[in-house]
Design a protein around this nucleic acid. Structure first.
Length: 522
RNA sequence: GGCGCUAUCGUCUAGGGGUUAGGACGGAAGAUUCUCAAUCUUCAAACCCGGGUUCGAUUCCCGGUAGCGCUACCA
């Protein structure tokens, strides 16, 4: 409809398109990683490919189970699924095998220089570092002798040093990329404890898993030259690369749990009441565009529209407010809409409005139950249409429909002055409520009869309809801003309505005796 | 420091040698309504700077600036 269907040649379907999402379990699943996963997933689904999930857990020092759980929690919530799953730590033999193959070809060498502590970035990073002196030139015999003697070493890639030597690849997003080999250092393949580095493990697995397209964050763009070297060194054809612009904080800095707090964690969005489809929709619009003016898109529309050509090259700001830094645990309690990017919230509201009553009420129920209100599904179903256009996040149900959940006498306290209608006074409020009580005692609790009876009563008393409705609204809802009155009364039922009007009348009488002056008595 | 990537309203973006530079969120004002919300209308708001190419650059090229990334036996 919006885009021409993608032509599929018979040949095309034979191409094994395989993408991978390879998070390292060293922190929580953050929004940037989620977006990378989503883009990979969309690309695969658009083209009929396979999605591989691979835990890049070679950094034993920093891996945590909590992180693994966070990643799976977040991915499961997204509800997109994946086709194959691997753990990098279980594939060490493969990594070493490929490292050895590269070494045997003479494309890597042992570096016996003791590991230097990475902390001293000052001294080292200011100079152009290419390789540790002496190690590159070590003869194979000498190298073997020292290794056999038990000397520990790192294995380094022997980056070509011929003049004019270049490494190149074509990025699907950033285009032709060329770098002089003279600017690439002899990076490590194996650490001195024999463990593979990220570069080696990642490429070895990509080769073995036959990954055809690597779609990942732009922070890897410069690393890609090394990866091309590894692929070629291992005798494999490098896959197609596509680097994604980074998601950054409002101040332009990279997203960090420490600096920006829970707003960067995917589960925060889940807990705040985002719909996964809305969250996905939002993330897709950061750094990618369907090139038409669509904003709200369903999962299927995203699949149909997605292409690497639509990806932007500049970093995208995720415009959250940096107001909630410390307490991750208390966030849902405070959870102001204003914490999140306004477009994310708006999109969520759009998606909520697009849900059927059945669907929305089923999603709302656990939240209401979780807050300690044992509401029956049928009742939730009746309440849902009254709040569907009034909530932006699912959790808003707790504030938007609170008066439906509590018992008749458990309404949160409100100021009796709220009961006084526009251009009226306490006496009018009292009069109106008293009359309303009589009318409501004998009117059928359905929208139309309630509407007619209350309007008629207002007219008979010579007050405006609004002056009659407002006191009733405050009496039953406990506040001025609430869903439409008649629908609300219908769901609440006669018993609770009358009880709450009685309570309101009591409040008013209490006030009247306290302040005897009532200027308007008519 | 070295190498690289990027630059359109506050934010996400469309566009592209000649346009009133389009849309969306957010903001402001108004309409509607029993309040709120939703909806509708209107308004404010942008091509980083300097050169060049050109009849004409926001668009192409170069430089500057700024931001970001990489520069680890982290990923």
């Amino acid at each position: 409809m919006f885009l021409e269907p993608k032509p599929r040649s018979p040949l095309y379907s034979k191409v094994m398109l395989r993408v991978r999402f390879a998070p390292s379990p060293t922190g929580f699943l953050h929004v940037g990683s989620a977006r990378t996963f989503i883009f990979n997933w969309l690309y695969a689904r658009h083209n009929g490919g396979t999605v591989v999930l691979r835990l890049d857990d070679t950094d034993v020092e920093r891996n945590t189970d909590a992180s693994v759980n966070s990643i799976f929690d977040g991915l499961r919530w997204l509800d997109l699924g994946w086709d194959e799953e691997y753990k990098q730590s279980e594939r060490l033999a493969l990594h070493r095998q490929i490292a050895d193959a590269i070494f045997q070809k003479g494309l890597a060498y042992r570096d016996f220089t003791p590991a230097h502590t990475g902390d001293s970035e000052k001294s080292g990073a200011n100079q152009t570092w290419l390789f540790n002196p002496g190690m590159r030139e070590l003869s194979r015999a000498e190298s073997d002798r020292r290794a056999a003697a038990g000397e520990s070493f790192a294995l380094r890639f022997r980056v070509p040093r011929g003049t004019g030597e270049q490494v190149r690849f074509t990025d699907a997003v950033y285009g032709e990329q060329i770098k002089s080999a003279a600017d690439i250092e002899d990076f490590a393949l194996l650490r001195s404890d024999g463990m593979p580095t990220y570069h080696l493990a990642s490429c070895a697995d990509d080769i073995d898993l036959r990954i055809s397209h690597i779609i990942r964050g732009q922070d890897h763009l410069s690393n890609t030259y090394k990866h091309v070297l590894i692929f070629e060194g291992a005798g494999a054809k490098p896959p197609q690369f596509a680097h994604l612009p980074l998601l950054v904080a409002p101040d332009g800095s990279k997203l960090s749990k420490r600096r920006h707090g829970p707003v960067v964690s995917v589960t925060t969005y889940r807990d705040a009441g985002f719909l996964p489809e809305a969250f996905i929709n939002f993330l897709c619009l950061l750094g990618w565009s369907p090139k038409d003016d669509r904003e709200k898109m369903t999962r299927q529309e995203l699949i149909d529209a997605f292409s690497l050509e639509g990806i932007n090259r500049a970093n995208a700001v995720i415009n959250f407010k940096e107001n909630l830094k410390e307490p991750a645990a208390t966030l849902p309690a405070t959870s102001p809409d204003e914490t999140f990017d306004s477009k994310a919230v708006w999109l969520n509201a759009e998606h909520i409005r697009g849900l059927s009553i059945d669907d929305l009420s089923v999603r709302l129920l656990p939240i209401v139950h979780g807050a300690g209100f044992p509401i029956a599904p049928e009742k939730m179903h009746a309440i849902t249409p009254l709040i569907r256009e009034r909530i932006k996040l699912l959790r808003d149900v707790l504030t938007a429909a609170d008066f439906f959940f509590v018992d008749d006498d458990q309404l949160p306290p409100y100021d009796p002055a709220e009961l006084i209608p526009q251009k009226g006074d306490a006496a009018m409020a009292l009069k109106v409520l008293t009359r309303a009580r009589e009318v409501l005692a004998q009117t059928e609790f359905k929208h139309d009869p309630l509407d007619q009876a209350l309007r008629a009563a207002a007219q008979a008393m010579g007050v405006k309809a609004g002056q009659m409705f407002q006191p009733i609204r405050v009496a039953v809802c406990g506040r001025k801003n609430a869903p439409p009155l008649f629908e609300t009364l219908q769901v609440l039922g006669r018993e609770i309505t009358l009880a709450r009007i009685d309570q309101a009348i009591e409040k008013l009488e209490g006030c009247a005796s306290a302040s005897p002056k009532s200027p308007l008595s008519s």
